[in-house]
Amino acid sequence: MLQRLINDVKDSAGSALRLTSLAGAAAIALFIAIAFLCAAAFVFVLQHYGPVEACLAGAALFFVVTLIAAGAFMARRREMRRRAERAAKATAAAALADPVMIATGLQIVRAIGVKRLIPIIAVGGLALGLMASRSAAASEKPAEEE
């Protein structure tokens, strides 16, 4: 039984490695093909318009590609932040709505006492406020600093 499990893991790891190396080879071939297409476009523009125009056309092409990639990156990062915020809100709501958590909180209040618990809650609220302001300040940093 255990030997079959080990063989299955070996087989799946081997096939994953083969697929990864094939994907790597395809990526390298695509990069080389794009490089030759860029060189051909450069030579074409160079022969018809001159060296300055050819360089400017190449720069404009790569600038547009960079803008598209940066836009896709920013959209993906924004979506990941939204998902993380939704997950955090759902987790917090689920924890606060859990009857076991409410019962535990009531037992803590009974054990410590309300008069002693008020300063502890005040210090905890202060720490939570400092932590929230710190995370808000960190999220307001410009994109170049991250």
Rank of each mutant, 00 (worst) to 15 (best):
E79N: 15
L117H: 06
V109T: 10
L106Y: 06
A97Y: 14
R116A: 12
K115F: 07
A94E: 06
R110T: 11
A95K: 13
R81F: 09
V100Q: 12
R86D: 03
A90W: 01
I120C: 01
A92E: 07
G113T: 04
V114D: 12
R76Y: 13
I112S: 00
R83S: 05
V114T: 14
A72T: 07
T104G: 00
A72V: 08
A93V: 04
F73M: 12
A75D: 09
Q107D: 14
A87R: 04
Q107G: 14
E85C: 04
R81I: 06
I68N: 02
R81L: 11
G105M: 04
M80Q: 14
R76N: 09
G113Q: 10
V100W: 07
A103Q: 11
A84K: 04
A84N: 04
F73N: 09
A111Y: 02
R83P: 00
R81Q: 11
R83D: 07
A97H: 15
G113N: 06
A72Q: 14
A111D: 10
A97Q: 13
A93C: 05
I108C: 01
G105H: 04
A94T: 07
A92I: 03
I118H: 05
A92Q: 03
I108Y: 04
R78C: 10
A94I: 04
R116M: 13
R83M: 08
A94F: 03
A93D: 11
A69Y: 03
V100G: 09
R81V: 00
T91K: 14
P99K: 09
R110W: 04
A95V: 09
I112L: 00
A95L: 14
R83K: 07
A87H: 02
R76I: 07
M101H: 10
K89V: 01
V109E: 15
G113L: 04
R76D: 11
K115Q: 13
G105S: 06
M80F: 11
I102R: 13
R76L: 13
I102P: 00
F73S: 12
P99M: 12
